[in-house]
C-alpha cells in the first residue's frame, strides 16, 4: 500500500454459488477521510465489508487494510480496526458492564472516558442487559465498544439503520468526534444521504455488485449534471444515445436528464432534442439516485408517460 491508503482492494470479487455478489471492485480509502459507501439493498455493500474485515474470503482478487491482506489479519492489526456490524448484534444475556469488561480486555488503547461518554449520551446504564435495550441504545453500545479502543479505522455497516432522529443525531456526533484524532479513518455504508452529506468527504456507489463511482463528495456533485429540456411539438419516441446518461424523466413537455461526466458528444445529442436547454440545480440525492435507479435501462417509459399526458 502507499502511505496514504488505509483500505485498498484489487479486483475484489465474490460469488455465492452461481450468484455474483461483488464484481471486480477496486478502490482506495485515503488515510484520515470519512468514506461513505452507498448502494441499494443487495448491491454488495455488506459482502464488501465482510471481505475487508476478513470475515469471508474473496472468490477472486484481494483486499488490504493497513497494507495487510484482509484474509491474513493478525490480532495486532485487528486491534487497530473498530467494527460495527449491521443491525448491531450483541449477546442479549450480557450486561453493558460485562460487554465493557470483555471488550476492554482485548485492547491496550482502551479509553474508558470515551466509552462512558458515548453510553451516557445514548442514556445507557451499566447494569442493563443488551437484550433489553432499544434499537438506538443497542447502536450506541455497539458504537461505544467499537470506538473506545480508539481505532485508526472505524468500519460501520449501515449504522443509522432503524434509528430514531435523536439516536441518529448522536451517531453523527460520534462520527464527527471520531475525526478529532488526526489520521482517524471512518468507512461506513448508509442510505441516509443527508447524513452522508454532513459527515463524509469521500463517496463510492455500488450498483448491482459493481463499483460505479469512487471520488470526493465534491467531485461527485461537479460530475453529475441535471439538464432540463423543454420539448417543442412532438416528442421523440426514443431518446438518442447520450453518453453518460443516468436517468431520464419526463413531465409533460419537460424532459429532465441526469448525466454524468458530460462530454461534447452528449451535449450535441441533447442539443438535437430541443434548443431550449437549461442546467438545473442538483442535490446529492438526485446524483445518487441517478446512479442507483433502474430507469436508465429503458426509455420506453417516455412513450408511456407521453401517452398519459396526451390522454389527460
Amino acid at each position: 500500500m502507499n502511505d496514504q491508503s488505509i483500505i485498498q482492494t484489487f479486483g475484489l470479487t465474490r460469488y455465492f454459488g452461481g450468484k455474483c455478489a461483488l464484481d471486480q471492485v477496486s478502490f482506495m480509502v485515503p488515510r484520515g477521510c470519512v468514506f461513505a459507501m452507498l448502494g441499494r439493498n443487495g448491491s454488495g455493500k455488506s459482502t464488501l465489508i465482510q471481505m475487508l474485515t476478513g470475515l469471508i474470503e474473496p472468490t477472486r482478487g484481494r483486499a488490504e487494510i493497513f497494507g495487510v491482506d484482509s484474509s491474513k489479519l493478525t490480532p495486532a492489526v485487528r486491534g487497530r480496526i473498530g467494527y460495527v456490524p449491521e443491525g448491531h448484534p450483541l449477546p442479549g444475556f450480557l450486561r453493558v458492564r460485562d460487554l465493557h469488561a470483555f471488550q476492554k480486555s482485548f485492547y491496550s488503547t482502551w479509553n474508558d472516558k470515551l466509552f462512558r461518554a458515548i453510553i451516557d449520551h445514548f442514556s445507557l446504564g451499566l447494569t442493563q442487559r443488551a437484550g433489553q435495550l432499544s434499537r438506538g441504545q443497542r447502536a450506541g453500545l455497539a458504537l461505544a465498544l467499537a470506538m473506545a479502543p480508539q481505532p485508526e479505522l472505524l468500519v460501520m455497516d449501515d449504522p443509522s439503520l432503524g434509528l430514531d432522529p435523536v439516536a441518529r443525531r448522536t451517531l453523527l456526533e460520534a462520527m464527527i468526534l471520531n475525526t478529532r484524532g488526526s489520521g482517524n479513518t471512518t468507512f461506513f455504508t448508509s442510505h441516509e444521504l443527508a447524513d452522508v452529506e454532513r459527515v463524509a468527504d469521500h463517496v463510492a456507489i455500488l450498483d448491482r455488485s459493481a463499483l460505479r463511482v469512487c471520488c470526493s463528495l465534491e467531485t461527485l456533485r461537479q460530475r453529475v449534471k441535471r439538464l432540463v429540456i423543454t420539448l417543442n411539438g412532438t416528442a421523440p419516441a426514443e431518446l438518442p444515445h447520450i453518453p453518460g446518461l443516468l436517468q431520464a424523466t419526463r413531465h409533460g413537455a419537460e424532459l429532465s436528464l441526469i448525466v454524468a461526466n458530460i462530454t461534447d458528444d452528449a451535449r450535441r445529442a441533447i442539443a438535437g432534442l430541443s434548443p431550449n436547454i437549461t442546467e438545473a440545480p442538483l442535490t446529492l440525492e438526485d446524483a445518487a439516485i441517478g446512479y442507483l435507479s433502474d430507469r436508465r435501462q429503458t426509455f420506453s417509459l417516455l412513450d408511456a408517460v407521453h401517452t398519459d399526458a396526451e390522454a389527460t
Binding site: L193, A194, E197, E218, P281, T283
Partner: peptide
C-alpha cells in the same frame, strides 16, 4: 443538507 447548494 439535501439542498442543491453544497454545504461548504
Amino acid at each position: 443538507p439535501g439542498s442543491a447548494a453544497p454545504i461548504f
